[in-house]
Design a protein around this nucleic acid. Structure first.
Length: 830
RNA sequence: GCCCCUGUGGCGGAAUUGGUAGACGCGCUCGACUCAAAAUCGAGUUCCGCAAGGAGUGCCCGUUCGACUCGGGCCAGGGGCACCA
């Protein structure tokens, strides 16, 4: 028997054995209970990084554990393969995005396989494969037919040099991140998915997602942003064509008597109508358009208003008129694109009123006596009672809201309503490397869906990236097609779908992948929802919200009877590493830091990133230490939801443990007889490791393993000790499967440990028969004593009072009270 | 500005319902083995103190026989949202 575990040999050997035996193939028609474990699929950027390793190791432990517990486990892997980096590579390296992507997939697949993950590779998919995106096009058309897809003008960040739309994240200080050109706001025709139709469902559904982190549920709740309020109509005092009346939305209808102005968005139809005949108005609106749409820019932008000269009539007093402004801070796509301003009780309105000399009227006060107290410095948005508000005077804020809504509805000039922050999902991208939108624009028939029998609409291969802009747009022939409906002149849609569409249903395709349709309803439903989904918190809103929407949309059109795609969600922390900088602030790699002449400062521990030069490539680490050591390190110490700091000591420690485990588990089985203490420890550990894996508390499971290993090493040879060593191998098998298989095989056990059942714990052995009782005096620990489990209160009290240390601590005071918690402690109060 | 989370040794972190704070790992110290090193094994390691003992879970206050855990108020760090009417 080898004295050292050789991971290089063992890893390759067992990986081959699992693959040849099809150990991790998930069977659709198994009669075992099903469990679907999924980690967020990677973008094939080039190489696997430590974040992937941590993510996939966690999922793998759970998948292997569930198999051992008797589940039929679906644990698939694929590639989120469309996206911009491929196009950037095409421009920089003159390779086709497809070629670049498929090469990366091959590399990364090989790297993942070397880590020994229990994946069903027969279900592997890549979103850039027409065999995948063709089905996505079919689903898109189903949603289109159901009225859940539409096209409208929308404002975007436009890079005039690269001639493309930029995401907000790609606009840096008002300039395109690649071209450096000043970004313009431009209106383009874009395709949208009606996610807002599901706003209420998506919000309500969060309540049922008990196995999601509260944090993520809260983030989604805020993102969906439900606001309850009132909508009502303002009449313009001297109307003119195109400017007669408009609706406003407010969450504070109670403050309606504090209004001192009304304002509309520069994009509001009335603003546009006024601009058509008034150059000054037009100039103001044009000014508002300057600059990007990023959060940072909006923040620094000055609040500006333009007095239209028009007046609106207060709905509750025909003689009361308010000035109408066009204001740059009123958004067209929230609420109704128009507001009324209450400077006394809204900070932004307060600033606006101060700037333009508008009245500030108090309508809410702490008490009726404070009705005339001026509002100074800032708006008061707290609770109170209504003042200076005619028939609302004396009411509380909530009562007043109800009263005013009731009156508006009775009189027909307004109504209670709910407004959402969530906007429809714009999915058009002016890019090549994405799923073509399967629509044909006909001069006569308009937007016509590509007939299903003509799917997939495949990306042309012969494209060039020498010129900026969308290669599909300037391809000589690809877009020229006859209209499917009238056979007249038509052209293909040249926009492609947002890559988040690709990831909105891949988990369904994993569960069922027929050739002729996106998925089989019954088969997909037999696996879904995903029992445990694991990934980074950076997807807390976008991907997870889109996938929830897509699933509900499919449910609405009758394709899949699942409302929530992910029953359990876990968001894991990042892998971090120390950073190094030289005296001029340049980032250094750890190797450079060691050999650098001159001062080197060791910086903060940060997320591994190329720019900070603190990445650690997993592959050489696996070469040196083996897959199990890397996996063990990924699971040890840090709670999985927190960041894990990569360190040389850490991986060394993991390596040492793998070797130590090998020695313990593979040593000759000798000795006979029972070791009751060890037996009890073994059975307790079986339970706690199982519970901790189930709860994804891997760091605690690892600690349990160490405790048992320590106990085995300290124990004298016995039959129990031999049994414990053997069981230990099964307990670590989900975490470090290669060394576990090796132990299993060398100890002559038949079959694979991966197929072995999880050990059963004997409930009788889970409790101690002797317990240590803490003895306190006035809540301070003074002594401990050992008593049989279940000893009576009187006995424990008597034992405690007999303790020398207790007597001393009492210093002669009489005992006033004795609290006894059976099997736990005695507290003497004196 | 609004919302949320976190704060425990030199470090990562444990601690059912309030019931022996510091499990487990890393690091460090001493010792064994060795010509030596690595590896391995043994002992120790919250702080102050020779000890007896005392203090101690970011800070202050409270509830309780008893608080890392519950309540109130601060401080620090991190995250999300943000002209949202």
């Amino acid at each position: 028997m080898a004295s050292r575990f050789n991971p290089l040999r063992a890893d390759a050997h067992w990986q081959k054995v699992w693959e040849e035996a099809g150990t991790f193939h998930a069977s659709d028609d198994s009669n075992r209970p099903k469990s679907y474990v999924l980690e967020m699929f990677p973008y094939p950027s080039g190489r696997i990084h430590m974040g992937h390793v941590r993510n996939y190791t966690m999922g793998d432990v759970l998948a292997r554990y569930r198999r051992m517990k008797g589940f039929e486990v679906l644990h698939p892997m694929g590639w989120d393969a469309f996206g911009m980096p491929a196009e950037n590579a095409a421009m920089e390296k003159k390779v086709h995005p497809g070629e670049w992507t498929w090469a990366n997939i091959a590399t990364m697949r090989g790297q993942l396989k070397r880590l020994g993950f229990a994946l069903d590779w027969s279900r592997e998919l890549a979103t850039c494969d027409p065999a995948y995106y063709g089905h996505e096009q079919a689903l898109f058309l189903d949603l289109f037919a159901a009225g859940l897809v539409y096209r409208k003008q929308s404002e975007v960040n436009w890079d005039p040099v690269d001639m493309t739309v930029l995401a907000n994240e790609q606009v840096i200080e008002g300039r395109g991140w690649r071209s450096g050109a000043l970004v313009e706001r431009r209106k383009l025709n874009q395709w949208f998915l009606k996610i807002t139709d599901f706003a209420d469902d998506l919000l309500q559904g969060l309540a049922g997602l008990e196995n999601w982190p509260d944090k993520v549920r809260l983030m989604q709740e805020n993102w969906i942003g439900r606001s309850q309020g009132m909508r009502f109509r303002f009449r313009i005092a001297e109307p003119r064509p195109g400017a007669e009346s408009f609706e406003v939305f407010t969450t504070r209808p109670d403050t309606i008597f504090g209004a001192s102005f009304a304002a509309i968005s520069p994009d509001h139809p009335i603003a546009l109508s006024l601009a058509a005949s008034d150059p000054e108005t037009a100039t103001f609106i044009a000014e508002c358009k300057k600059g990007g749409t990023t959060a940072a820019e909006l923040e620094t932008q000055e609040k500006k208003g333009f007095d239209t000269g028009l007046k609106v009539v207060h709905p509750l007093d025909p003689d009361w008129q308010l000035p109408l402004f066009i204001a740059n801070f009123v958004l067209m796509d929230y609420g109704t694109g128009a507001i009324f301003g209450v400077p006394g009780h809204d900070q932004r309105d307060f600033e606006f009123a101060t700037k333009y000399g508008l009245p500030v009227q108090r309508v809410v006060a702490a008490s009726a006596e404070e009705a005339d107290k001026p509002i100074e410095g800032e708006a008061e948005n707290g609770d109170g009672i209504l003042v200076n508000s005619r028939f609302l005077d004396g009411l509380g804020v909530e009562e007043a809201k109800a009263a005013i809504i009731g009156r508006a509805e009775a009189e027909g000039w307004g109504e209670g309503t709910i407004v959402w922050r969530l906007r429809d999902w714009g999915v058009s991208r002016q890019r090549y490397w994405g799923t073509p939108i399967p629509i044909i624009h006909c001069e006569v028939c308009g937007a016509v869906p590509v007939p299903k029998d003509q799917l997939p609409v495949v990306l042309p291969e012969d494209v060039s990236f020498d010129v900026p802009g969308n290669p599909l747009e300037r391809h000589p022939s690809w877009k020229q097609v006859p209209c499917p409906s009238c056979a007249g002149n038509a052209r293909r849609e040249t926009d492609t779908l947002d890559t988040f569409v690709d990831s909105s249903w891949y988990f369904i395709r994993f569960a069922s992948q027929p050739k002729d349709r996106p998925f089989d309803k019954a088969t997909a439903e037999s696996w879904l929802p995903v029992d445990q989904y694991i990934g980074g918190v950076e997807h807390a809103i976008l991907h997870l919200l889109y996938a929830r929407f897509w699933t509900r949309a499919l449910q609405r059109i009758g394709r899949l009877d699942v409302a929530e795609p992910f029953a359990g969600l876990f968001t894991q922390g990042m892998v971090t590493h120390v950073t190094y900088q030289d005296s001029e602030g340049r980032w250094l790699t750890p190797e450079e830091a060691e050999t650098h002449d001159g001062p080197v400062t060791s910086g903060r521990v940060e997320k591994m990133s190329k720019s900070k030069k603190n990445t650690v490539d997993p592959e050489p680490i696996v070469d040196q230490y083996g897959a199990d050591a890397v996996r063990w390190f990924m699971l040890s110490d840090s709670p999985p939801e927190r960041d894990l700091e990569w360190s040389e000591e850490g991986i060394n420690g993991a390596w040492r443990f793998i070797q130590r485990l090998w020695r313990i588990a593979s040593e000759p089985r000798e000795g006979s007889g029972e070791d009751p203490a060890l037996k009890r420890k073994l059975h307790q550990t079986i339970t706690s490791i199982g519970a901790n894996i189930e709860a994804l508390a891997f760091n605690k499971a690892v600690a349990n393993v160490y405790e048992l290993a320590n106990a085995i090493e300290k124990a004298k040879p016995s039959a129990t000790r031999s049994e414990a060593s053997e069981t230990l191998a099964r307990l670590v098998a989900p975490m470090i499967p290669h060394v576990a298989e090796e132990v299993w095989a060398t100890s002559g056990r038949p079959g694979l440990i991966a197929d072995a059942p999880w050990p059963e714990a004997d409930p009788a052995l889970l409790v101690e028969d002797e317990v240590t009782i803490a003895v306190q005096v006035n809540g301070k620990l003074r002594d401990t004593l050992t008593a049989p489990r279940g000893a009576g209160r009187d006995i424990l009290e008597e034992m405690a009072l007999a303790s020398d240390k207790v007597v001393r601590a009492l210093e002669g005071r009489p005992t006033r009270k004795v609290i006894v918690v059976p099997d736990r402690l005695v507290n003497v109060v004196g």
